[in-house]
């Protein structure tokens, strides 16, 4: 097993941990962090795969993708945090309300 595969597998593991936390934890901040952890795992997979060819210079395309992905993750997190603050104010706790009733 070469190091690229090892890093990729660790990335998959981190992704799975994030998914587990996303489903399990009701607190919204934990959910948002879980999504970020999943994203980081994925970026690790991408970076590892850039070295898969074994050439001295890594493949540049996955690195460009990771940069783009980080920008997307950053703005998604900002939006999620802003929304979480508003939700927490409405629900009086930072969790989603299970009550499906619709107010007019």
């Amino acid at each position: 097993m070469n190091s690229a595969i090892l890093y990729a597998l660790v990335g998959v593991g981190i992704f799975s941990l994030g998914l587990y936390a996303l489903i399990l934890h009701p607190h919204l901040l934990r959910k948002i962090l879980a999504i970020n952890v999943m994203g980081s795992g994925l970026f690790l997979v991408l970076i590892a795969l850039a070295k898969r060819t074994g050439e001295p210079l890594p493949d540049l395309v996955p690195q460009a993708m990771v940069i783009t992905g980080i920008v997307v993750a950053f703005s998604a997190t900002a939006l999620a945090l802003a929304l979480m603050v508003r939700v927490a104010k409405e629900n009086h706790r930072a969790e989603l309300s299970d009550d499906e009733s619709q107010q007019p």
Binding site: F15, L19, L22, L28, K31, I35, M38, G39, L42, V45, G69, A76, L79, A80, L83, M84, R86, V87, E90, N91, L96, S97, Q102, Q103
Partner: peptide, 23 residues
């Protein structure tokens, strides 16, 4: 309350969907 809860649930679902797609 409804709109914000709906939006938050939608955001989590859509981000999860995007990550699965990106994988």
């Amino acid at each position: 309350r409804d709109a914000l809860n709906g939006a938050m649930r939608y955001l989590l679902a859509t981000l999860l969907g995007s990550l699965a797609y990106l994988f």
